[in-house]
Structure formats: C-alpha cells, structure tokens
Design a protein around this nucleic acid. Structure first.
Lengths: 190, 190
DNA sequence: CTTCTACAATTTGGCTCCGTACGGTCCGGC
DNA sequence: GCCGGACCGTACGGAGCCAAATTGTAGAAG
C-alpha cells in the first residue's frame, strides 16, 4: 500500500499542531481506521464481485436487505440500508427496470409500497451472495473467528452509542442555535 | 435505534436461504458492522461539527490531511483521503475558492501541484479539530482505551490485507476475463 | 359528507463523487 | 530534437445522496 502513511505518526503531528490541547488519540485512531477500512472493503467488493453483475454497492445492499427480510416496506428498507427514502426511490426504480425488484402496493394501507425480489432477483442473490461472502472472508483473513466476533462487538457498541445518544448530543452541541441548513439540496421556498 | 434489525437474526435467515452453502458468519458480521458504524459516525460528525462550518466529510478529510502532513502533492492527498484525483480537483477548487487552501506548482517538477493550507485554513483546523475529536471520543464512549487500541489494530489488519493482496485477488477472480467496465461514467469513443 | 391532519412515497433541485477520455506540460532517454 | 511516459486539469456521463416540495391515501373531527 504505497503512500499509506501511519496513523501513529499522524498522532504525533497532531500533538505538535495542538500543543497543550488534550486529544483522544486511541479514539481518533479507531474512527480513522473505520473509514479507511470501510472504503477499502467497499472498493474491493465493487471491483471484484459487484462489477461483474453491474451492481453498485448501494444497489447490492438494497437487494440484500430485501432478500434477507423478504418483501418489505420501502421506509424500512431505506433505514436498514442507511439511505434516505428519496434515494431509495431512484435505486429501486433502477433495479425494477432491470427486473430484479418488484414493487407492490400494500394491501391494506394504500400509501405504503412493498419491495420484493423477482425470481430473477432471488436467483441473482443466491448466486452472488456466496461470492460476496467469500470476499468478506478474504478481507478478514488476518483475523481469526474470535477476533472477528470481538471486533464486531466493539463496532456494534459504537453504533448503539451514536443511535441512542447521538441526537441529544447534537442538540446539546447546537444549544438553541438553529441547525445551520445544508448548503446543497433543494432551497426552501420561503 | 428503531428499525435496526439484528445482524445475528440476519445470519439465521441467510442460513435458511442458502441451505448447505457454508458461510463465514463472523466475517460477515464484521464487514456489515464496519459499514454500519462508518455511516453512523460520518453522519453524526457531518450533522454536528462539520455542518456549522459548511464542510462535507470529504472536504474536511482533505483539509485534515493537508493540515497534518503539510504541503503535499495532489496524488498523495487523493490517495490518503481515499478519493480519486479527479474528485480531488473539484474539492480542492471549492476549498481554494473559499480561501482555505492554496495551490502551488512544484519547484522542481513542473507537472506536480502542491496543496497547502492558507492562514485561514490553519486557523479553521485549529479551531475545528478539537471539536471533531471530541465527537470521536463521544462515539467511542462505550469502549475503554485498551478496547479502542485493540479494535484499531484489528481494522488495520484488514486494511493491510486488502491493500497488499487485493489486487492479485481481483486478478485471480477474473482469471483472464476482461474487467467488465463500470457501467456508469463516460463511454469509450469506440 | 366534508374538512382537516398525519403520514406515506415520489418528485425535484442541487451537490458530490466516480470513471473515462482527452489535452497540455514536463521529464528522461535515445 | 523527438518520443514515450507520468502527471495534472477539464469535461462529460452517470449514479448517489439529501432535504424540500409535492402528491396521494388514511383516518379523525366536525
């Protein structure tokens, strides 16, 4: 990995930059490594198994969620995948046009839309997931099963922390000040 | 975290879906959690400290890399940040137009371009990074220092694995077949 | 029955990011 | 001097992504 500079070395430089200001070094290293590894793994999977079936990462995750959990309401799929409902609309449409996903109205509540896999979609996932998982095994090759479990547990704790206390934390940080609107995105009419 | 369904439960469903096909469950859980936590942390940081300074995640990381490592060649910045050189051009231009980044030609090799922070950029990072790090500490609150170190080490191993053996692995998987061009992006003229 | 309200998905606008393809510039070797 | 290679910049085309605005349904209130 040419050019990959060490995070430990970075810490020393941060120390020098900030003089007396105390910094959580271990925490910084975890967060930095999380994003580094997420990008590396995603890129590896896109360039190995996903590219061959012309699927983006997001599209695959959407298929995976529907595959695992069965026909589901769009709002749950969006949340599970980690994208907005508006984004899911577009991704689902693409997958529908390729005959992998089927969209159906909810039998009781006409506002809801259910997403399910077509037979073709089922077949694709049945073929693709073992390949996908084989790469998951490949990337984690330098960890034994126990280390995998422990690492997953640590990561899960971070997710729980953010998802249970994140919102109140953000509110406390802003402390009254309005949330500073996102610069991109559609402008408010007012 | 409403709607967050358990990965353990998902594993059972995968098992049911694939019958006899053996699956690396622990590895699957690690990879799934990596991306879940990466998205959660990124979103938390964008909505807390970054939004206030109108910075995207990518823009902040670019600033951070330049801040830490000092004036650097664009190719190293792009690699360190984990984005393509083309993307960096756009991001750097935006940051330059806001007076945070300065761009200069390499004194010896005229092909290279060096990116550095302006005084304003330095000041911004000096103010922003402690806030950023405070949120890193917040999200990892449920891990003690030792757990942080161990987790970072595990993640680092995955990065090393992908970056040392990823390329040959992808080559072996394709095994001769041409790499199946990305469907999006500019079409070849031919 | 009508209206109002809540909530759902979708549409729309704006931005980000990637991969590809060129074009320009510079370096090194022949 | 010329050519091949490396590098940056620019220009597309395309997918993702978010948040506001819109549209449509459900259900309650009058």
């Amino acid at each position: 990995m040419p050019g990959q500079r060490s995070i430990i070395e970075a810490e020393k430089l941060v120390e020098a930059k900030l003089g007396g200001v105390p910094i959580g070094h271990d925490q910084m290293a975890v967060v930095a490594n999380i994003h580094r590894v997420a990008a590396a793994v995603r890129q590896h999977l896109e360039n190995s198994v996903l590219r061959g079936s012309d699927l983006t990462w997001t599209a695959f995750v959407v298929l995976w969620v529907i595959w695992i959990w069965g026909e589901s309401e769009t709002r749950y799929v969006a949340e599970e995948v980690g994208i907005s409902k508006g984004t899911l609309t577009g991704v689902a449409r693409t997958l529908e046009s390729r005959g992998l996903v089927r969209r159906a109205g909810h039998p009781e509540d006409g506002r809801l839309v259910l997403l399910g896999l077509t037979t073709e979609g089922e077949a694709l996932m049945h073929r693709l997931f073992p390949q996908f998982n084989a790469e998951e095994v490949f990337v984690t090759q330098r960890l034994d099963a126990e280390e995998c479990r422990r690492t997953a547990e640590m990561l899960r704790r971070i997710v729980v922390q953010v998802e249970t206390h994140g919102e109140e934390r953000r509110a406390a940080l802003l402390d009254g000040a309005e949330p500073a609107p996102r610069r991109s995105g559609r402008r408010s009419k007012s």
